[in-house]
Design a protein around this nucleic acid. Structure first.
Lengths: 161, 161
DNA sequence: ATACATGCAAACATTTTGCTTTGGC
DNA sequence: GCCAAAGCAAAATGTTTGCATGTAT
């Protein structure tokens, strides 16, 4: 099940990228959360923003967009810190490894995943779970409730082969 | 995050257990799918039926209900085969390890999970995703579509401490 | 100057496989 | 008897940590 990043080249000068503002905003959020502005931090956030889909630690570490050539351990710790501070989210997909994705305010994160080729597609749907979530929060007494919703199946391409 | 089984004792004579019929049915489904009736197979299914919640490979292998004291590799291969044949389902929860749970026909499998203590609770709710699933299947062309829905948060007990 | 971040290497946890022996059918 | 399953042991994979050094603030 392949899971490697396929990120468009972007010549390392973040200000020139399409989503430059999003990256800047993300870095800002990270800084407000107490992280230091380092090359690795900027690169990791840049990669996640550009990908706009869940990436594994390996995806990020090997994406070639890490100008610094940051160490895996560094990326690992960055992802962990960013997740703890709510800048990114960790997903428990079926792969052996964890996936991380940017948290874009007001944006849904439900996925459609192929069990054969591992392709992960973000679903832009009106999620019907929102209402239910509120209800469950009340009934269960759980705090900080959020949900994860994934659809699994076999994509048309894989079904042929 | 603890994830060990807490299965009620049941003196190894499957016919005497509360859910004996469910175990028998499960074994039967496995047999029809081409698996051989072995001690390990019966034990694993017995454990999963009794637990009635997702268990990890380690949970099953160390549950003490494996009369045969089956090897981890054996349990692993059994779980894999059973999943491939649709007798059980594998869940990608946030834990490092995969979870397996019985597939009870007509029963929903949405979960409420505590991010602190790791407690996993099955939700007996009318899942609002069903309709959406059909729609997505049509639009995406995906085959064998199913979904996984989990709610994460902090349970009341953990919130106190 | 201080505390946080990084790199490198090593430890861990879990899954996965190879191969021989056992046992269901 | 034949082929799937079990047992044992080792490899593979991915995560996590310790410690010395570098660097943002």
């Amino acid at each position: 099940m392949p899971s490697h990043a396929d990120i468009h080249a972007c010549n390392h000068v973040h200000a020139q990228c399409e989503n430059a503002d999003l990256v800047v905003a993300a870095v800002e959020r990270a800084r407000e959360a107490g992280l230091r502005r380092t090359r690795a931090l900027e690169d990791v956030l840049h990669i996640l923003v550009e990908a706009h889909r869940p990436l594994t630690l390996a995806d990020v570490a090997e994406s070639g967009q890490l100008g610094s050539g940051a160490d895996r351990a560094t990326v690992y710790r960055l992802l962990t810190r960013l997740e703890e501070r709510g800048v990114i989210r960790r997903l428990g997909l079926h792969d052996r490894s964890a996936y991380y994705t940017m948290v874009f305010p007001g944006e849904h994160n439900d996925y459609l995943i192929c069990n054969r080729c591992g392709k992960i597609e973000r679903l832009d749907i009106a999620c019907p779970v929102e209402a239910l979530e509120t209800q469950i929060a009340q009934q269960s007494g759980f705090a900080s409730l959020y949900h994860e919703l994934e659809f699994y199946g076999v994509c048309p391409a894989c079904a042929e082969a």
